[in-house]
Design a protein around this nucleic acid. Structure first.
Lengths: 222, 222
DNA sequence: TGTACATCAGTGAACGCGCGTTCACTGATGTAC
DNA sequence: TGTACATCAGTGAACGCGCGTTCACTGATGTAC
């Protein structure tokens, strides 16, 4: 099989002045590799080049090296994540529903992009600075959402909303990651339900008027 | 520096009949490498051999290859973990205190062995089978501990203890892992305190007679 | 007591592989005169 | 309108590296006769 050669021949070179297009293709290919493996060590310049259909050295016209490429990948992932959240939050007025919906979205993203999620929050992620920027935005949104629940009397006001946001984030991270990494564990419920229960208890939600997601036992197995 | 050569010369060969000793040395070296990096890709046969002070092919007398070595490392880590838990649980009668103490121990282990912990529960961990054996034991101990709290009237009985154990485990995992991976995040409290609050809320502890770790706000920042 | 042999605990050289990175290059396209 | 030149978007060969893995080996020690 001369797959590489074929691929190389297949790809038409970008028109003059639009060489930057390749940058996006490279990031996309690297993202796919990470999504597929969940492991950033799989992202090699040669591997990415092969996937894009270019020669490995061509990457150097757009990235200084592997680290810079990985950084770009993580940035893109966080942007995707943020835009997804933006779409999701449209048209939910009820504070409790909004909070739970945001948390569900978080976990759904993790489950739908396990490789990406794993990488975004791993110690390998080169996005320490960027991550805290985008991450800080997400956390402050979560904080706001919790504060709204408290103000409307739907949540316990005993704990500072900023602190609660950290508790919620940490727990959801564990839930999502373990569901991804050890799906064969005997989970008492699916990720969505566990998210609801966890957030409800941590934040002390008093129960939404429409669904009553309070402390009652759900479909958990006995 | 001829460090490698020196190391090789330094190591005396094991007496006849005790070649198996090397096996332990190899596992120990691999464990150190993982603890240092938290990344199993750093565990290479050549790297381990160098650390032990032997030639790389010598490893093949004890392990079939990298995967088998990693499996042995994870097994050892879980054994260490279990023995630590065993020591910890001595002499605590109060059910609530016992539960919280066990959870603290879990998180402390994670914080003290970040690389090991990260690897044990990562998707790279080759211990899918073994992990669920040792892991199942840990979970059933946790379940028992929660059940005892419920029986003594210290915890909400609204949820099945087995389900609660899963909730607790997942949340602690997230807490521990994020404290390890993103220590620079603005955490509202240290890991110990967050563990107490999280477990208390998830399990619905009613407050121990001696310390009152209930829903009251702790030293969280506002 | 001596000696041939088997076993044990490793070694050292070599292989092919994929990797990051460098370097000089190619060929198409726009632009100044 | 023609042509020399600059720029752009890449390429292909080559390098040194560390890796897993193989192979035949070495030298010490126990054991059978």
């Amino acid at each position: 099989m001369t797959a590489t050669a074929e691929t190389l021949r297949d790809r038409p070179r970008n028109p003059r002045g639009e060489g930057a297009r390749l940058r996006d293709e490279i990031i996309a290919a690297a993202t796919e590799l990470i999504e597929a493996s969940g492991d950033s060590t799989q992202v090699t310049l040669r591997g990415v080049a092969k996937k894009v259909g270019i020669a490995a050295p061509s990457i150097y016209q757009h990235f200084d090296g592997t680290e810079e490429l990985k950084l770009a990948v993580v940035e893109r992932m966080f942007r995707q994540f943020a835009s997804k959240r933006h779409v999701e939050r449209e048209g939910i007025d009820d504070p409790e529903e909004a909070l739970l919906s945001g948390c569900q979205m978080y976990c759904r993203f993790a489950l739908e992009h396990p490789g990406a999620y794993r990488f975004m929050f791993s110690h390998e992620s080169p996005a320490d600075g960027r991550q805290s920027a985008t991450g800080a935005a997400a956390i402050s949104r979560l904080t706001e959402s919790i504060r709204r629940c408290q103000k409307s009397g739907r949540a316990s006001v005993l704990t500072d909303p900023r602190a609660l946001a950290a508790y919620v984030w940490a727990s959801l991270h564990g839930l999502a990651l373990l569901h991804i990494n050890t799906p064969n564990f005997y989970w008492p419920a699916n990720l969505e339900e566990m998210t609801t229960v966890t957030v409800t208890r941590l934040v002390g939600l008093t129960g939404s008027p429409r669904s009553g997601t309070g402390d009652r036992p759900r479909k958990e197995n006995t």
